[in-house]
Simulated scan of single mutants.
Amino acid sequence: MSDEYSLPAVLERIYENQLALEAAVMELVILIERQGSADAGDNARGALERIGENSGFIRQGLARLIAQEKN
């Protein structure tokens, strides 16, 4: 299998997409809050917190997969 499509490579791209979506959602949260929708902003911030919490776990899993692939 090509390294380009290995499991760690694919998961890395999914992780990068997650980070990009997190940034985009944060921009939307700021816009929503500026328009006075505090409840919607709070809900979206809750989702962003979960993304942040999972980010470290995903990163550690990717690091382990990459290390296993090298061995």
Rank of each mutant, 00 (worst) to 15 (best):
M1N: 11
M1E: 09
S2R: 09
D3N: 15
D3C: 11
E4N: 08
E4C: 05
Y5G: 01
S6K: 02
L7D: 12
A9I: 04
A9Y: 03
V10C: 06
L11T: 06
E12F: 00
E12D: 10
E12G: 00
R13C: 02
R13M: 01
I14N: 02
I14Y: 13
E16I: 11
E16A: 10
N17I: 14
L19E: 04
A20W: 04
A20C: 08
L21K: 14
E22Q: 07
A23H: 00
A23D: 00
I30E: 15
L31C: 11
L31K: 15
I32V: 14
E33Y: 01
R34T: 05
R34G: 07
Q35Y: 11
S37P: 03
A38C: 08
A38T: 10
D39I: 08
A40P: 04
A40L: 12
G41E: 12
D42M: 12
N43V: 05
A44E: 09
R45C: 14
G46S: 09
G46Y: 06
G46H: 05
A47K: 05
A47W: 09
E49G: 02
R50L: 12
R50E: 08
I51C: 12
I51H: 14
I51G: 07
E53Y: 01
F57V: 07
F57K: 12
F57C: 04
I58W: 01
I58T: 04
R59W: 02
G61I: 02
G61Y: 05
L62W: 00
L62D: 00
L62N: 00
A63Y: 10
R64K: 13
I66P: 00
A67K: 14
A67L: 10
A67M: 06
A67S: 10
E69I: 04
N71Q: 11
N71K: 14
